[in-house]
């Protein structure tokens, strides 16, 4: 294990991009305002100065065009990283990623590789309203041929970025926007393989699986609950770490998933389904999910703060379920809403 350096989440992204670009001259970055302005969220600070305008490029507001250009460049042996400022803007480019990039290896009888990375900022909590606050993993998660990762701290932002760029297949990185300014410690020699969950806290009472900004929420909730909970940062949504997660659930006999996305159609359903069907007889309680309600992200600060799972609410549900073995009611069911 190497030494660690303190840096913010967004600086970890810059460092990983720079380290990959130093190591491999085919790596390049493009997106809106990533070059001259160094990124709307300052995730490309210093890159234009170091790597020049051939490899670091500003684009027009043409997500379909430049995402598709990444597909073509990647096929030809480049390693393009594309920045989609807010995940919602992938909507106008989805074809190129999901229907073109993700199918190239398959349709070329295994001859083509598309080593591209699409990064997008995701998530709620900053008052950007319902067209700029969704996480939208499910837009991309049901796409065989496309990997999907989501860091939760500076270390995973760094290591998952490097792993994603090195990966020979297209990888989508969901970057929780609310974490960009958060500080952490980064060991640049630590690699985190795609497809491997991170056990952030060992425990025997319950297995909690969280992703992105929900990892911090879950950590705080565990502290409040007083229970000995095993906390797993899923880190990769596709292909998710079935082996690691199920081994933990086998040990604790209980599973709670914390998600920042509408209840219907979330990635956690997959995990709860797998644990339920594969470990049914070994479970001590019903596996369940804590999610947002099935509503658009509200703008009002008062509402947005309740929209996402809170540490208090997660703690309540951990305690209740540990006592009863059943899945607790959501806050909105308790409020008689919906």
């Amino acid at each position: 294990m190497g030494t660690t350096t303190p840096m913010r989440f967004r600086q970890a992204i810059v460092s990983a991009l720079a380290d990959e670009m130093r190591a491999d001259s085919t790596v390049m970055l493009f997106g809106e305002d990533v070059a001259e302005a160094e990124g709307p969220f300052k995730t490309s600070e210093g890159l234009l100065a170091e790597f020049g305008p051939l490899r670091i490029r500003d684009t027009p507001i043409s997500e379909m065009g430049f995402t598709g250009a990444a597909v073509g460049a990647a096929i030809m042996g480049m390693k393009p990283v594309v920045e989609i400022m807010f995940m919602e803007f992938l909507g106008v480019a989805l074809d190129q990623l999901v229907t073109e990039a993700a199918k190239m290896r398959y349709l070329s009888n295994g001859k083509l590789s598309v080593p591209m990375v699409v990064r997008a900022s995701v998530g709620s909590g900053l008052g950007f309203g319902c067209q700029h606050s969704q996480t939208l993993e499910n837009w991309v998660a049901a796409t065989p041929g496309l990997k999907v990762v989501c860091p939760s701290d500076a270390q995973s932002a760094y290591s998952l970025m490097r792993a994603s760029i090195q990966d020979p297949d297209p990888v989508m990185i969901l970057e929780p926007r609310i974490l960009y300014a958060e500080r952490g410690e980064v060991d640049t020699s630590l690699s985190l393989p795609i497809g491997k969950a991170r056990v952030l806290r060992k425990g025997i009472d319950i297995t909690v699986v969280a992703l992105g900004q929900m990892v911090n929420v879950a950590r705080n909730a565990i502290e409040k609950s007083g229970l000995d909970v095993e906390l797993i940062d899923l880190a990769t949504v596709v292909p998710w770490d079935r082996e690691g997660v199920l081994a933990s659930v086998k040990k604790t006999g209980r599973l709670v998933v914390v998600e920042e996305a509408p209840k219907s159609g979330g990635w956690g359903s997959e995990i709860v389904a797998a644990a339920t069907s594969e470990l049914f007889s070994q479970l001590k309680g019903a596996p369940f999910r804590i999610t947002t309600p099935d509503v658009p992200v509200p703008y009002s600060g008062v509402l947005e703060a309740r929209f996402v799972p809170t540490a208090d609410d997660v703690a309540r549900q951990l305690i209740e379920s540990f006592k009863s073995g059943t899945s607790p009611k959501s806050w909105w069911e308790l409020e008689g809403l919906k």
């Binding site: 950007f128 319902c130 700029h132 658009p296 509200p298 703008y299 008062v302």
Partner: peptide, 14 residues
């Protein structure tokens, strides 16, 4: 983000 707003505060400036 107040109820007096044209979308009751759930829409926002945009």
């Amino acid at each position: 983000g107040k109820t007096i707003g044209c979308c009751g505060g759930v829409g926002g400036s945009m």
